[in-house]
């Protein structure tokens, strides 16, 4: 469970996040939506330790994790993916995945040269695990491809795969569906649901695709101008006048109404 209390992040005079308080319940797939510039990604960045908050606290399972550096949060099981997919472009897809689990034997200079056998065994296990992950994501044919050569959607899958290399508790997905076609988006959606059900991952998802949000997320939090505007089930959010005004527009409500009548 993540609790964010009265979080502020100001850049000079600009209040990117302006006193947002949210809760992400363990085991949920929480959606985070809102217009561009609402402060969603900044909120993610503060929670993930990329930015120091101007004020406010972030608490994970009762522990104050405000302002911890990203690699420490990683060890606590808090992971994130990027809006624009990141990858180690000169390494293969499998190597990208094998980079992830921290605290491997081969991380010290000494072990590198003097414990070759133990490292080799550990790396063989990791390679096996990476291949399982690629199977799960249905991209095992790309294992030996250089990650820089992947398409945008495949890179998004790789981002998701990275979170599967460790026992993550909570994963923050930043626009995991942006620039991804329908079929691949469904694959990603299925993977998220399965990870949530089978492995008990908690997800917090920023997304603009309301169908995707509606299918996956409960509850949904709406942000606008750095503040939390509304929170509730996907259906109630789509009916919420303030949200429609700030973000969704009239078209979607009409569509929802038409669907309800049909």
């Amino acid at each position: 469970m993540i609790v964010v209390e009265g979080l502020h992040k100001h850049f000079g005079g600009f209040r990117a996040v302006d006193g947002a308080s949210i809760e992400i319940a363990t085991g949920s797939i929480t959606g985070l939506i809102g217009p561009n510039g609402a402060g969603k990604s900044t909120l993610f960045n503060v929670i993930a330790g990329v930015y120091q908050p101007t004020a406010g606290r972030v608490i994970m399972d009762g522990e104050d994790i405000t302002g911890l550096p990203p690699h420490d949060l990683f060890h606590k099981g808090l992971l994130r993916t990027f809006q624009i997919a990141h990858e180690f472009s000169s390494m293969t897809v499998r190597e990208n995945l094998m980079m992830v689990p921290a605290g491997q034997l081969g991380e010290t200079l000494w072990n590198t040269w003097f414990h070759r056998g133990r490292i080799a065994r550990e790396e063989a296990e990791l390679a096996k695990k990476a291949d399982d992950v690629l199977d799960f994501l249905t991209i095992s044919h790309l294992a030996d491809e250089r990650a820089g050569n992947l398409s945008g959607g495949q890179k998004k899958l790789l981002e998701l795969g990275r979170t599967m290399m460790v026992d993550a508790k909570i994963v923050f997905l930043d626009e995991v569906g942006a620039g991804v076609n329908r079929t691949l988006l469904n694959t990603i959606g299925d993977a998220i649901v399965r990870l949530n059900k089978e492995r008990g991952y908690t997800f917090c998802v920023i997304e603009h695709d309301m169908d995707f949000i509606g299918r996956l997320c409960d509850p949904v939090i709406v942000m606008a101008e750095g503040k939390v505007l509304a929170k509730g089930s996907a259906d109630s959010i789509m009916q919420n006048e303030a949200v429609i005004e700030a973000y969704l527009g009239r078209g979607l409500k009409n569509k929802a109404k038409a669907e309800a009548e049909a």
């Binding site: 990203p70 690699h71 994130r80 990858e87 980079m99 921290a102 491997q104 991380e107 590198t112």
Partner: peptide, 28 residues
């Protein structure tokens, strides 16, 4: 060392994409 060992690879990873390396738990 740079191509085959974990330490070397984390150096390459850090050089390639610092943000991602940090968020992959690599200790800078």
């Amino acid at each position: 060392f740079l191509n085959k060992t974990r330490t070397g690879k984390s150096m390459r990873a850090y050089s390639d994409n610092e943000d991602l390396a940090l968020l992959s738990g690599i200790n800078p």
